[in-house]
Design a protein around this nucleic acid. Structure first.
Lengths: 210, 210
DNA sequence: ATCCGATGTATCGAAGCGATACATCGGACT
DNA sequence: AGTCCGATGTATCGCTTCGATACATCGGAT
């Protein structure tokens, strides 16, 4: 499993952690999960599944115990093994080198309800500072090319800048509400609370897929 | 030149149309032009340049007439041939099948000042309706998965929706100002006007890379 | 009754990516 | 004066991923 593969690994493990699934369904879920608008190719998915099978992280389930998805033919339902569950936990708990890169972040975020608060903050803040670096790059680039004025190019750069600024604001709100949430119900993870950030009524827009 | 290559072709041609350049410089410009945050690989660029050379659209310039970029070693400066210029014009004038796909759009937009008004409108409107389709997808997907409530996933979908809505608004403003601009100075392309849209003081944020 | 689009698994050729090798240059530090 | 080092610069290799396609079954519309 290669350079993009490890994100795929996390994503597949996470989805199968919710419920067993076959490849076709998995792909659809992955497409929205990865946030990429280009569909994930089967030429990527199936090799990845094979690799996961080989590592013993998933297995093919004997058909027909999942409710309401009993087809009678060759649909292969995958489910997590015990090792798979452990692997998922370790991946989600210790975000590897650079979990805040573009697609990485989306996937990690999607599994935040299965992540502990400390890790959530770590990922959110990592992502934010990553974006702030990018912001710097934008600003210097824009002052550098100030004189060479093509309005359309300027518009494009301007847009990009504002888009990233927007996402930074969004992240800041999430971080704040994450911290606030922690102080009130950090100690009891089993308390029946609405898993997730304390929706503060304000929304932002993250990256939307590279 | 393959599936992404034709965008690359347009981008390279467009950049070399401004001024001759060597590969390293070209790559940096392409990275900001393509809007992709993942850097374009040399393993993509150099084969593309070879292909363009093979087609006779660009040629290697004899070194040392460009002002202030005279290195004495092997830096290879590329420049457009006459065929290259024609090719660029035809690519920029008749936007091929789907010029409004994610990265495609950025590149076409970047060369708007060398595009006629009709084509500009065509691309902008195509892009907008493309995004509106995507909006539909989002909304149905969100109502469909309403009951299955993971706040983080919801937040992610919400964000995406708003991000796209934002870009639609941006495009609408561009289209409006494009139409308004057309009525005042459509007829004289050589008039020394501030090439570009009539900056209406409002900005939006487009896609940011794929 | 049969057509057709959605569902479903799987692979292949081509293209792109990340890493790396190699080389020169200018400036900083000692 | 030496020498280190990061930026500039060209180029290729192996592995991953993509887009297309093949093939098969299902359910519903005509």
């Amino acid at each position: 499993m290669g350079r993009r593969g490890d994100v795929l690994e996390l994503a597949v493990l996470g989805l199968l952690h919710e419920s067993p699934m076959h490849g076709y369904e998995l792909r659809k879920r992955l497409n929205s999960l990865l946030g990429a608008f280009r569909a994930l190719s089967y030429g990527t998915l199936y090799p990845a599944l094979k690799s996961l099978l080989g590592q013993g992280l998933i297995r093919e389930a004997g058909a027909g115990q999942g409710p309401a998805l009993t087809g009678k033919r060759g649909r292969i339902v995958y489910e997590l093994t015990a090792e798979g569950k452990e692997r998922f936990q370790s991946l989600v708990t210790q975000p590897g080198p650079a979990a805040w890169e573009d697609e990485r972040f989306n996937v990690h975020f999607a599994f935040f309800s299965r992540t502990d608060a400390a890790t959530r903050l770590q990922v959110l803040e990592g992502r934010r500072s990553r974006l702030q670096e990018r912001l710097e790059g934008f600003r210097t680039s824009m002052t550098r090319t100030r004189e060479r004025l093509d309005s359309y190019t300027m518009e494009l750069e301007q847009h990009g800048l504002e888009s990233v600024e927007r996402e930074v604001r969004w992240l800041t709100e999430l971080i704040d509400s994450e911290r606030a949430g922690n102080m009130t119900h950090l100690e009891d993870p089993d308390r029946p609370r609405p898993t997730g950030p304390a929706r503060s009524g304000v929304h932002g827009a993250p990256d939307r897929g590279r």
